[in-house]
Each structure stands twice: as structure tokens, then as C-alpha cells.
Write a protein that binds this DNA or RNA. Sequence first.
DNA 1: GCCTTAACTTGACGTTGACAAGATATGGGT
DNA 2: ACCCATATCTTGTCAACGTCAAGTTAAGGC
Lengths: 193, 193
Amino acid sequence: MLELPMTKTRPKNYHHGDLREALIKAGRLILEEQGIAALTLRACARKAGVSHAAPQHHFATVAELLAEIAASGFEDFVAALDKGSANAPGPRERLKAMGRSYIAFAHANTAIYKLMFAAEVPLKSERLQFSMKAAWNQLVVAVAAVHGSENVEATAARVWSLVHGFSMLTTTRRLPPTVDQDDALEALLQQLD
Amino acid sequence: MLELPMTKTRPKNYHHGDLREALIKAGRLILEEQGIAALTLRACARKAGVSHAAPQHHFATVAELLAEIAASGFEDFVAALDKGSANAPGPRERLKAMGRSYIAFAHANTAIYKLMFAAEVPLKSERLQFSMKAAWNQLVVAVAAVHGSENVEATAARVWSLVHGFSMLTTTRRLPPTVDQDDALEALLQQLD
DNA sequence: GCCTTAACTTGACGTTGACAAGATATGGGT
DNA sequence: ACCCATATCTTGTCAACGTCAAGTTAAGGC
């Protein structure tokens, strides 16, 4: 065996340092660069520069990794909705701005958006539960500011259904091409208040 | 080579007869009996009693088979909505009944419902396009009977978004447990007219 | 400075989708 | 009635995947 020159080849980190987070970030990159089909445990491991079985110690199954990636998606999602509705003049405009931001996020980040709502990601992850709860709270607050605090949750569920349904149907191309999506979007946003 | 007795072992159907449809039916069975994870090409082939590569001739890829299964789902779906809203006293009640049937179908047939709207099923299948179009037309007619024929498609898209979003959020357990789903459903159905 | 233990590697197994090459039945043309 | 082109199915193979098991290396408490 030839001895490779001990140049700056980095001290062969047997221990990665923070492989867990690195795998999640690698997963997010793969997701937006190559789509959901390429998002495998082994691909994440490769991208993070570790062996194929290294993730095992941090994620018992692929599904667990997917859940963490989805959670990180929800975190960005909440931030985007916050930012997108920050300087709205009033509660109604704010809710509407959130709706627009929601749909914009779904279209700009299709892959992770679909993952966030995919049936196969398990909901046991603490981080996922926390970030989903944050998203829900964000919505409930905005809805309460418009509709008052009676029946808030039912109203929030209705609003979410409306916007989420539209996002899903459009991103998965389920609406016929004859439908003017901008028209539909406007018609839809009228029903938020 | 020993000659196996030519008993009633069924004339060794080298040719299946209608393998294509058999595979679709097998897929639907597997889907509801074992879930989406078990729905593989090879599993369908096994259930249909053919070799693992037999499907190749009828479906170039798994995705193509999934599309046909989804299409058969849409056919049942349209029938269910038709039946569920058949004897409604008026257009408004009919639209509301369709909404209820939609959500009922989603909950009673979660697996195939999710497949029908899954992003990974390609939309090129003629049968899928046809059955999806049928579902859309069904909705448009019902909406037009309530709202008139101006802006029908935008309104139909809004209605579909609302009901579909709710179905998705509930079947994938995205709504917090604090939400009373029956309340939310009623609040939601009020917005159909 | 040892030594338990967490983190990572290597190697393996069964399953999957897909491809290739061979076997077999079907049916139209004569 | 026969033949043969062709559609259909089988067998065998491949790489890639998720997961498990066993061995190797580094870290940190004592």
C-alpha cells in the first residue's frame, strides 16, 4: 500500500462532529437539486462524506430522517409566512398575505412542501411536532385577529384546508389547464375573511 | 428432465389472457390490504400469478401501473360522488352532499385516495386523464347549478381546493387533535354556496 | 493513561425496478 | 391445414436501496 502524502487531506474525521444536522442539510440539498426520488439514506450519507451505514446511529429508519427534513421545512415555512405578512396594514390583509405566502412557498419549494405533508413521514419527531404546532399557532393567531376568538380552530381548519388544497392541486397539476389559476387564487382569497 | 404429470394443473397459461387488468386489480387489493409501501410491481405480479418481469410488457415502469390504479380509483370516486348526491332535493344540497361524499370517500379509501393525488403518478395515462376529467366535469356541473355559469371554473377550483385540502389534512393527521373535525367540516360546507 | 462507550466503517442479506435473452403461444395470411 | 411473425411470458441478471451485524476508531470521564 502506498502511503498517501499527509497533505491537508483533513485528519480523516472518523467522528464527523455533527453528522445528524449534516445529514438533514444534505437531504434538503438533494431534495431541491434532484427531487424526492433521489432522497435516499445512502445519498445523504454520500453527500455528508460518510459511509452508507453511518446514519443508522442518528436515524433508525429513513422515515426518521425524512421527518427531520420535513421539520426543517416547516421552520422555513413559518419564517416565510411571517416575513410575507409582516407589514400588512391590518388583520384581514395580514391573513390574505399569509395565504399568498403559503401558496408562493408551495410553488417555490415544491419538493419539500410535498414532503412536509407526505403521508409516509412519521409524526413522532419532536422537532416536527414543534414546528407544525408553530405553523398552526401562527395561523390561529392570524385567524383570531380577523374572526374573533369564537370557533377559531374550526375557522382556522377551514382556512388552512382552502389554501392547502389549492397549493396541492396546483403543484401536482390536478386542475385542468383551462382553469385560470390567478383568477382561482383571487376567488379563493376572498373567502379568507 | 422428468415429465410432470399433465393433470388438471390448469393448461399452464403461458398467456394470461388479460394480465393488464389483472395487475391493476391486484394492485388495488394490495393497496387496501397492505398499504402503499407493499404496492410493488413484483407484488402485483405475484398476486396475479405471473413471473416478476411479466408486467414489463404492459407497463414500462411502476409509475405507469400506479397511474392506472389511480385512474381506477377516480372511476370509483366519481361513482361514489354521483351516488352520494343523487337524491338531493336541490343544487345547493347536491353540492353539499358531494362535499360530504368526497370526504367520506377519502376517509374510507385512504390509500387509493392518496395515490390518486400523489405527485409521483405520471399524468400521461389516457385512462387517468379521462377519469380525472370526468371528476372535474361532475364538479363543474354541480357548481354551475348553484353559482351560475360565470366564473364557474374558478369557483369549482375554489370548492375543490376547500374539500380536498380538508380531506388531505385530516387523512394525514395534520390538524391538531384539539380541532373538532365535525365542527370544522360543517363550517367548511357552509362555504360551498 | 486507561477504558467504557459513542460514532463510524465494512460487509452482508433480502427486496426492488429494470434490462436482456430465451421460451411459448396466438392468429393472420396463404 | 400449415407456417411464421409477433405478442406475451419466463428466467436470469444487475445496481441500488434499507437494514442488520460485527469490527474499528476516537472521545471523555475516572
